[in-house]
Design a protein around this nucleic acid. Sequence first.
DNA 1: CGCAATATTTGACTTTTGTCAAACCTCGTG
DNA 2: CACGAGGTTTGACAAAAGTCAAATATTGCG
Lengths: 323, 323
Amino acid sequence: MPVRSTDQILHKAAWLYYTHGLRQDEVAQHLNISRASVATYLRRARETGIVNISTSTQLFADDVLARELEDALGLAAVWIVPEDRHAMDPTAEMPVVAAAVFLELINKGDRVGVAWGRTVYHLADVMPYADLQGVTVVQLCGNLGAPYSYRPDQCTTEIARRLNAEGINVYAPLVLSSEQLADALRNEPVIREQLATISDCQLALYSVGGIEDDSHLVKCGALTAAEMHALGETGAAGVIAGQIIDAEGQWLDCAHNRRCISADLGSIRAIAKRMMVVQEDSKFEPLVAAIKGGFASHLVVTTSMARRLLDRWNSEDGNRRTA
Amino acid sequence: MPVRSTDQILHKAAWLYYTHGLRQDEVAQHLNISRASVATYLRRARETGIVNISTSTQLFADDVLARELEDALGLAAVWIVPEDRHAMDPTAEMPVVAAAVFLELINKGDRVGVAWGRTVYHLADVMPYADLQGVTVVQLCGNLGAPYSYRPDQCTTEIARRLNAEGINVYAPLVLSSEQLADALRNEPVIREQLATISDCQLALYSVGGIEDDSHLVKCGALTAAEMHALGETGAAGVIAGQIIDAEGQWLDCAHNRRCISADLGSIRAIAKRMMVVQEDSKFEPLVAAIKGGFASHLVVTTSMARRLLDRWNSEDGNRRTA
DNA sequence: CGCAATATTTGACTTTTGTCAAACCTCGTG
DNA sequence: CACGAGGTTTGACAAAAGTCAAATATTGCG
């Protein structure tokens, strides 16, 4: 009855059980331990990503609506999460689907950028464990305290931890009090180099922020409700990685953006797979702006949001034709 | 109680059970079917690759010996399969490990080349099911009847089927009766194009063949024992994808090779990940030749084989130093 | 070196899952 | 339209897996 603390034994148990298909008591015999221990080891092996159990997200991708959206908006792939789901907690479903899709989109050796928002937080919370050594998770924007469970850096770290990947954080605040300071900090070698690597990412993960008085940026204290309101008047339409974009998805030249330390929008657009997840129906206009701005190649949305998007694009097509 | 034959229901059951962690009876309730059906669906979902359960092959890679081999022979990665394995069928272990390693090495969208041999057959037999749509499995050599379970094309097909990948077969015999005919066939557009795509592969899978009287090529009737014996006299050391190589791993200019329709050895060397699996201890010299010829970047071998390889390389190093 | 705090392992019990023959649908065919 | 082959679904039972408090080992520290 040897007592080893290494996780060598986790690997052995997992291998015999999952790959060879032995029963737990058989595994116990092989390893000279009790069956109860085997059960514990197997749970740990699953939790640490030694064993990976993944379900295809096909279910959410093979909807006619999804195909239509891809064609109409020119997206690489769309996943549609139905709202009803047979009395299953509806708000909980989206991040779960998104997490699974995210995992499917990651390739070995990839560098992935992760932004910030309530959606991303929830996603991190339900992210399955996996063994993605060689993957790097980089933070797309500066840091800020949040009224939710994680700060941006904690969020990156948590995702990296669950994936057994390397996490790289941005050691700077998201918003500074003056443009000068923001400029100076952006030019600090550590920060500059880090932001420069963002366009090397193969995959980005984010949601789009709204510009209402109760939007995320306001709740986190980056902007006051009044400031946000004013921005709305001057063309703000949504938020990408902490930065304000206009209705066409372009960077808005405003005080907030100039004081912001985050990934250059051009760098984000340069990322091959840009995965956008949108939960709330209220984010329709911001989402339209983000899509026009080229911030989404892979989209995860609800059925109703998908319908609205399709309607909008069809009507714009109609307008263009009649014009 | 609807009766749907689609596998939509497989996806739903798998999603609720594996991703949401519901119990089988809860899933049954959600889907309005009996729990027994759920159990059946889940099995089918696993068998068709909708659900993927994979165990890290780390266990076989984190051996000191493996590290030493990588360093000494300049290989990218080595997996070592212990021979004893606690009364577990030893010959059965290698293909299982190899199959898992193979799966880990495949990336989405890859093109993988699969060669031919008893080892590869067994590997196909134990290949887990997976959902690798977008992957293409191409056959590296021509066809030939075999005394084992599969022909080369069946083997490619079987692997592709289990992986839900696309399989591409070579519609030509491995060996022809005359060099003229082989030349003519090699220049047929269909065949030529197919062989030309081999260097586009990201991953190759093969073993190395021996040159004894009872070697694979002889058993399959491609060569007589006498011919093989004669080839041994003129420098043959092993077999790669049906073709004879010499002790340095170079293409041997012989009648058999000239009559052979298979991947150009240069194309094979051009593949980034060249995964070689060797089961039998008797294949030591062929393996040495194959490694010298640059046919392995990723190696799966037994402990004893690993030791012998290391000894050989160390002694050659010694010779070089003393010379 | 002893002792407490912490982590691991186990046996006994409960819950969950796998299995299989029988019942039941479905669809093509005579 | 009745029949039967081929498939799916189910209920009931057997087998396997999960759980947890108690026991045992390990570690850190005075």
